[in-house]
Design a protein around this nucleic acid. Structure first.
Lengths: 239, 239
DNA sequence: AAATTGCTTTGATGTAGGTCAAAAAACATA
DNA sequence: TATGTTTTTTGACCTACATCAAAGCAATTT
């Protein structure tokens, strides 16, 4: 728990992310009851840990602003990024199964999160069917996402993977009202590579190649997608 | 829905898989209420579909006997196996998020499943906290499993992947009271390869190599693990 | 402004696993 | 027992990506 994490009361009912986040589909009255979970908003600086592998599980976390990466640590020191999460997304779902966090979550930039004590969330979702259903959907969506990555890792070549990654980011930025074609990466080549099962040099070369082909413009971490359609085409092309 | 799938009433309370399956941790009385979901047991022949990609989602399925594979179909014809499921395991969780099945489930051998209508399951789990908790754990476990496969696909070499796969099977057979060291594979080299992100020839060579090294005995689909510890060691060895 | 530090890019070379092809088993059907 | 079909094994060769190495940049500190 970083020192610089002042807790403060927060309210879903007045959060501008409510459309994306846990309260989807709740009535005003139900949303107030969600507020009563007495969720706290905490701040994190870049590279602070939200939780570590092995930590006791108590809460899920809704990212309020900023972004996190989750990663698994292998016994032998290898580590692999399992996801990059942004505002409105819920993390910590993997810990429900064993009451212990199986991976760790690290802030990629200065960020804020709402803590959602899981016991209280379960109790409340017994009372509010639409919350129950939504919680199930969130968990199921994570399963679908993970299976998409399995497909990517198991059957796509390097440039297809990077294209899929960029399109996924693009789509998520769009959902948040940001530009789908111009954005700043908050992760290094190394982290992208870890996520995509590739080495950082391969990521760098793929970026350069996309740029030479006129599909994107890259200046280090600043990305501009020039042709979304060519990027999409790149995912299916077997060459 | 195959023609040869006579539906018949089944009861968790008298099922010998209850220890592994959905009813874990329920009292006798609670288990009876689960029986009232009026779940039906259906039979499937090898290569019958339990559900197909795109089907409307209505139910989860508990495998009562036999085994299934789940696979995603890529747009371009590529398909990838996302898992092999055996008795006591629950499938269909990926469909909750969108109410449409995202992948398809195919029987690997003659099998039986209990159908669990999801609406009823949700209703019941609002009444029975331990069922609610267990359902959450099952979903979370699937997330952890998928992330384990991401790690495997993203950072292990061919023989490490196959070793991990065999150990996983071994462990699951053991849980079911079967031999952890002698078993019959119910999937082809091709299917194993698809699951592990490798080609069938690579799987075949890895089997042969393990056999030459005296770690296992293979006769086509009959496997005997001679040294579980060497197999385990193989996962971490970088060579 | 110089120095330190941590990314990123690019090139040269190596290799694990893919691809192609053919033979050998296993299995199924008659 | 013969016969066709599918799966598995094995070999020879190829390629996409990894590895190794060096240089270029950007950000931070002194």
């Amino acid at each position: 728990m970083p020192l610089n994490a002042p807790a403060q009361k927060s309210a879903c009912s007045s959060c501008n992310l409510a459309e994306l986040c846990l309260p989807i589909g709740l009535s005003a009255e139900e949303m107030q009851r969600l507020d009563e979970l007495s969720m706290q908003k905490r701040s994190f600086l870049r590279s602070d840990y939200l939780y570590r592998s092995g930590d006791k599980f108590r809460s899920l976390f809704a990212i309020s602003s900023g972004s996190f990466k989750t990663q698994i640590l292998h016994d032998d020191g290898r580590e692999q990024v399992t996801g990059f999460q942004m505002a409105g997304e819920i993390i910590g779902l993997d810990a429900i199964s064993s009451d212990i966090h199986a991976c760790e979550a690290v802030a990629m930039e200065n960020s804020r999160v709402c803590e959602l004590p899981f016991n209280k969330l379960e109790t409340l979702s017994r009372d509010i069917p639409s919350l129950q259903r939504h919680l199930h959907k969130i968990m199921s969506r994570e399963i679908v996402r993970d299976q998409g990555i399995m497909l990517l890792l198991g059957s796509m070549r390097a440039e297809e993977r990077l294209a899929a990654f960029l399109l996924n980011l693009s789509q998520r930025y769009a959902t948040r009202g940001l530009s789908p074609t111009r954005f700043q990466l908050c992760m290094s080549r190394q982290e992208i590579g870890s996520y995509l099962g590739l080495k950082l040099e391969t990521i760098s070369r793929a970026f350069s190649h996309f740029q030479e082909a006129g599909i994107i413009k890259v200046r280090v971490r600043a990305i501009e997608i020039i042709s979304l359609s060519e990027l999409k085409a790149g995912i299916n092309s077997s060459c």
